[in-house]
Design a protein around this nucleic acid. Structure first.
Length: 127
DNA sequence: CTTCTAACA
DNA sequence: TGTTAGGA
């Protein structure tokens, strides 16, 4: 199949599919015309890529752990320690991000709830 | 009509 | 990533 069909069958834009190839995630054959030719296996490959991207991994990280994945009933099964490791690290990063967001939210609450802010917001006398 | 590369009001 | 120009 050509890029258009793969795009339709995966719901991923042609732009993204070409990008994945550029990142080494997909290596479709080429017709003499230059057109990319994908196999049925690429449909599953794209799904795996989407899942990993959804887990917050970048294409470089996915490229490294892609061969560690075993396709099993539409889901992913970590097949080697590298993948489990990458996923754990990603989990830790999420924890850090959550922590920073909580700090930012606390800062906003301080500003919003401060006496001065409340005064200038609602108790301004007519001039 | 579909795909390709390259580039960005 | 989207979009688009210009070509095959």
């Amino acid at each position: 199949m050509r890029i258009g069909e793969l795009a339709r069958r995966t719901g991923v834009s042609e732009r993204a599919l070409r990008y994945y190839e550029e990142q080494g995630l997909l290596t479709p054959q080429r017709r003499p015309s230059g057109y990319r030719v994908y196999g049925d296996a690429d449909v599953a490959a794209v799904r795996r890529i989407r899942i990993l991207l959804g887990a917050g991994l970048n294409t470089a990280q996915i490229l490294e752990i892609l061969p560690c994945i075993v396709d099993e009933d539409g889901w992913l099964t970590p097949d080697c320690p590298e993948l489990v490791d990458a996923l754990r690290q990603q989990r830790d990063r999420i924890d850090d991000a959550i922590g920073e967001l909580e700090t930012t939210r606390a800062n906003l609450d301080t500003i919003i709830g401060s006496e001065k802010a409340a005064a200038s917001r609602g108790t301004r006398p007519p001039s």
